[in-house]
């Protein structure tokens, strides 16, 4: 009993010592306000925290202000060899997990043409974030699922994309496109109209001019069509178009972030 008490005290003391350093750093935004939407390019830093699988932290220093952001929450995580475009909203939250000001929601797009020097920080007393299955995930085939009931309605589905990519983001975009395609198949839709968008209007981020290539709009639409094909929807009922200069949308998958809401594919499913 006494042994246990002492162990508890020791643990508490050690924890205090461990978190003393981070606490002193006063992790708060240098300039940014809570609620502000930020967009910047930086080289990511990996912090090797260990709270089980996928619990490492990702940090991004916004060079324009010097604020270190916690960008771990992004569905796409960084690659330590490449620069990232970070888009997110500043929130108050637990800065002791990773050691950065929390962005939530946050999107990371890996910029493969910009190399970075890889940098790994040790945990340094930060706890990391225990992995939990994202709420937006595809369920296995062996799980029963509910079919839509008639009367069927026309529905539009928006699929979000990372900057410059046509890859269906795991546990984000796949959730939406799976819903869209399954709906089309379940109701035996008479038509599906796909519109691929690309954000071709230039924006300036961290001194760089960013614009998506025009042909990306079509490539994104074609990925959606390939989903329909592989899931067994007849392609002769599919219409496909591409739209550049994409406008801001209210797509759910962008979680209210402005620029990410432009990068999308829309599937209009007509009964």
């Amino acid at each position: 009993m006494q042994g246990r008490f002492w162990r508890f005290v020791a643990a508490a003391v050690l924890v205090n010592v461990a978190v003393a350093a981070p606490a002193e750093q006063q992790i708060k935004p240098v300039v940014e306000q809570v609620g502000e939407e930020v967009r910047f390019i930086t080289c990511p830093i990996y912090r090797d925290t260990d709270a089980g699988r996928k619990s490492g932290c990702w940090l991004g220093d916004r060079r324009e202000t010097g604020t270190r952001f916690d960008i771990t929450g992004s569905p796409t995580k960084p690659d330590w060899n490449h620069a990232v475009l970070v888009e997110g909203r500043v929130v108050e939250g637990d800065t002791q997990q990773c050691g950065g000001v929390l962005l939530e929601p946050v999107r990371v797009s890996v910029l493969h043409d910009q190399n970075c020097t890889r940098h790994m920080l040790p945990a340094e007393g930060f706890t990391g974030r225990r992995f939990s299955l994202p709420t937006r995930n595809i369920r296995p085939l062996y799980e029963p699922r509910e079919l839509p009931k008639p009367p069927y309605q026309e529905k539009s589905f928006d699929i979000p994309f990372d900057f410059g990519r046509d890859y269906i983001v795991y546990q984000l975009s796949d959730y939406y496109i799976d819903k869209a395609v399954k709906y089309a198949i379940d109701i035996d839709a008479s038509r599906v109209e796909i519109t691929g968008y690309a954000a071709t209007t230039p924006t300036t981020v961290s001194g760089q001019t960013l614009r998506e290539p025009a042909e990306l709009a079509l490539r994104r639409a074609e990925v959606a069509r390939e989903w329909l094909r592989r899931m067994g929807y007849p392609l002769d009922r599919v219409k496909i178009r591409a739209q550049t200069k994409a406008k801001v949308s209210d797509m759910e998958g962008a979680d209210g972030l402005t620029e990410p809401s432009r990068r999308r594919v829309t599937l209009r499913v007509i009964p």
Binding site: Y46, D50, R53, S55, G56, K77, Y170
Partner: peptide, 24 residues
Amino acid sequence: RMFLISDSAGITTPIGFGNPVRDR
């Protein structure tokens, strides 16, 4: 048992698990 997986296509790209990613 966790370890740090890096630069392994199919894990660390194109899926957004991150590069590196700590897993088993």
